[in-house]
Design a protein around this nucleic acid. Structure first.
Length: 430
RNA sequence: GGAGGGGUGGCCGAGCGGUUGAAGGCGCCGGUCUUGAAAACCGGAAUCCCGCAAGGGAUCGGGGGUUCGAAUCCCUCCCCCUCCGCCA
């Protein structure tokens, strides 16, 4: 959520910033509502001041043993007027809230303006391996090994699900463990285990609701009970852990890492990545979240990207870093770097991590503040999140980058301790 | 699921129709004392909204009601705790 004061004081700047993100047309409407609200508030507060004064006088009269029935009757009428006007104000405020909840975050000045074509490659690491044969896409590699099974997953659920068998399932677990160990032991993140079902308020706090409900799986609860949402990323529960709290500056930055499955409807993605396990309704992810002061949040973003990169480096997977343009960023982000891993089976880079600084956008919704060390009022923290990494896509990258001519797949050395020391996956005998 | 108890400021906790924006404690900030620190003592400080300001308004889990007036009474929802039952 954007800060209303900023919109009121610099409407042109906000409109310009939103040009490539949508929502410009809402600003004028917001300003009209805001002016209306302020006019009404001023008026009704004058009435309340009068009531408070009269109430005090009545109290004193009563103490003197009098019974000021005329004054009490007058106040009864005034009270009704106040109630009516308060309701109108509440109505205006609800309208403003609705508009604000649908406005995306403002991009940081360093973000290129435009759409996906304006994304900027920041750096590359690693050299894509040259194959003596035509590298296959991961689904072919995996099915030949008997570790990826899309048909049975479709039988159990539907398309965009997968079953991992044997060494495939083991590889998924090994990757998860490897990533968690790296981030907790070497990068200073605290491991957290969180609910996978959250309430609507939590979803709204990180920006998934109200605008993107069609992307979420929702539980069906008995009449009168509130539904839960399946998390599309651990960013949601991790970021909201300190919702409504005031943290101390010396506690910041908070660095959290959690492993969770992620559930996404992928509405609107029909026809995209239908083969393989690039785009699934359920996938595992190791997620990094930080809460930081505004002063350090952009340094924290850079180090978060490095933390995610380190996973790819140790797994010897070539990648590149891309700074997303304004129009390609997520709703809550002010600045986002994507990590794209090289997939030889597809002959292109694909997103495997996305690291964002959301500044105060989510903190304002969730009410996450901190008290500065120097005397002063509590301020909103900045929230950051990034994948460290998407586990399924990492598995894909290994299958494609480490496939051999005989159909086997080499295990990257860094992962072998997590795979009982085996150095390759051979076709299973079922 | 059944029966009780409870949600108050950064935290703990008193208040249970008007003098309570709210006692007390802890923590925090400033000062006295001290070589320095601690302790002790003195003083200070809630948040948000409207307003150029003076000032005003709102806020005691959320919403609604009673009343001239509600942290205090009533209704409702949410959450937490204890005991019983059931259960991975």
């Amino acid at each position: 959520m954007l800060d209303l004061k900023t919109i009121r004081e610099h409407p042109q700047d906000v409109e310009r910033a939103l040009e490539s993100r949508g929502g410009v047309e809402s600003i004028q409407r917001l300003l009209v509502l805001d002016a209306d609200r302020r006019r009404r508030v001023t008026a009704v507060e004058a009435l309340k001041a009068e009531r408070n004064k009269a109430t005090e006088e009545i109290a004193q009269a009563k103490r003197r043993g009098e019974n000021p029935t005329d004054e009490m009757a007058r106040m009864r009428k005034l009270g009704d007027e106040i109630k009516e006007e308060d309701q109108k104000i509440a109505e205006v405020e609800r309208a403003m809230e609705t508009v604000l909840l649908h406005l995306p975050n403002l991009p940081h000045p360093s973000v290129p303006v435009g759409g996906p074509d304006d994304n900027q490659e920041v750096r590359r690491w690693g050299t894509p391996r040259s194959f003596s044969f035509e590298p296959k896409p991961h689904w072919e590699v995996g099915e030949r090994l008997g570790i990826l099974d899309f048909e049975r997953a479709a039988k159990l659920a539907k398309s965009r699900f997968v079953v991992l068998w044997g060494a495939g399932a083991r590889l998924e677990r090994a990757l998860t463990q490897f990533m968690l160990d790296l981030h907790t032991r070497e990068h200073g993140y605290r491991e957290v285990w969180v609910p996978h079902l959250v309430n609507a308020e939590t979803m709204a706090n990180t920006g998934q609701l109200p605008k993107f409900e069609e992307q979420l799986f929702k539980t069906l609860e008995p009449e009168g009970e509130r539904a839960f949402y399946l998390i599309p990323t651990a960013e949601v529960p991790l970021t909201c852990l300190h919702g409504g709290e005031i943290l101390k500056e010396h506690e910041l930055p908070k660095r959290y890492v959690a492993f969770t499955p992620c559930y996404r409807r992928e509405a609107g993605a029909a026809g995209q990545d239908t083969r393989g396990m690039i785009r699934q309704h359920q996938f595992d992810k190791v997620e990094l979240v930080k809460l930081a002061t505004p002063r350090t949040s952009y340094d924290e973003l850079e180090s978060m990207v490095k933390n995610a990169e380190e996973v790819l480096k140790r797994l010897e997977l070539p990648y590149r870093i891309v700074l997303l343009a304004t129009g390609d960023m997520g709703f809550a982000a002010a600045k986002t770097y994507d990590l794209e891993v090289w997939l030889p089976g597809q002959g292109k880079h694909r997103e495997i991590s996305s690291c964002s600084n959301c500044e105060a956008f989510q903190a304002r919704r969730a009410g996450i503040r901190y008290r500065p060390a120097a005397p002063g009022k509590a301020e909103f923290v900045h929230t950051l999140n990034g994948s460290g990494l998407a586990v399924g896509r990492t598995l894909i990258a290994i299958l494609e980058n480490f496939q051999e001519a005989d159909g086997s797949v080499t295990i990257p050395p860094a992962l072998r301790p997590y795979m009982d020391g085996i150095d390759r996956i051979l076709p299973a005998s079922v």
